[in-house]
Amino acid sequence: MPPLLKILIMRLGLGVLTLLLVSLVVFAATQALPGDAAKAILGKDSADTERYEALRKQLRLDRPLVEQYTNWLGGVVRGDLGRSLVGAGANVTDLIGARVVNSAILVLLAALVSIPISILLGALSAIWRDSKFDNAVNMTNLSLASLPEFVIGILLVLVFATAVFKWLPSVSNVNSLLPLAGQMKLFVLPVITLALAVIPYVSRMLRASTVEVLESEYVMMARLKGVSEPRVLWHHALPNAIVPTIQVIAINIAWLAGGIVTVEYLFTFPGVGAGLVDAVANRDMPVVQALVLLMAAIYVLLNLMADIFTILISPRLRTGLR
């Protein structure tokens, strides 16, 4: 078996184990919340003991905890996330499906915008270290990082949607039933907001590692060999400087994927973050469990991808595989 595949399988196994632990914690946590699902559904009517007991039986809440857990987990494995406790009791998969797709598109776009910009800014401020450009980028990054995302979002809305210019919609109520192409405009402001939240971290990390690499002896050697500055940067420095940044990128994307609730609320964007908040408010346990498990899976997967990518671009790690 190729060594990389072995690592992949091993790490996937560990990932599944992590998710299993997460599922336990999620299940325990939702159990620990005051009141159970039956009470949540009945609301004030839960005082009616007879109806309450009947519903508990119907929801199988009277069974032992272990059985409840294994039933639920068995459903998850088969792809059956259960039924929502709210309203008509729709299938959870159908209920969150649209939100997951919306969030996925948002995160993908935010990543596509923010990663190249971060790399460019980080690399350029490293070569022009202590220059006006570097200082300006540094100041902007710090200001952006110190502002909460929703403040940035509000400012963007003020400038581009309401008070100054009226170019873009201030509300991004994406409808997953309509074709995506016609709705791209709705994504612009949320994507910019998220990108501005990620760029400071990634670009500062890349700047730091590039500065370190530019001071290295192999970069000095490349310069003393007569290699041109652009080639020194892109060919000699960046492939080494990017390595520690990969983990930071992965964690940031996972963070985005976890749903930036405040940003989704601001733009009334139908994503997973807002969905999770609604579900918690409604005591809709099956939806909460499904979304939390999904977010955990994304963290595990992105970190695994970052590790594999790190191995692929570091010859020392790649050739060291046994």
């Binding site: 192999y218 050697m221 060919h235 000699h236």
Partner: peptide
């Protein structure tokens, strides 16, 4: 250079 191991680019 003095230290060849540090002066050769590890990624190339």
């Amino acid at each position: 250079p003095q230290d060849a191991s540090a002066s050769l680019n590890p990624a190339l």
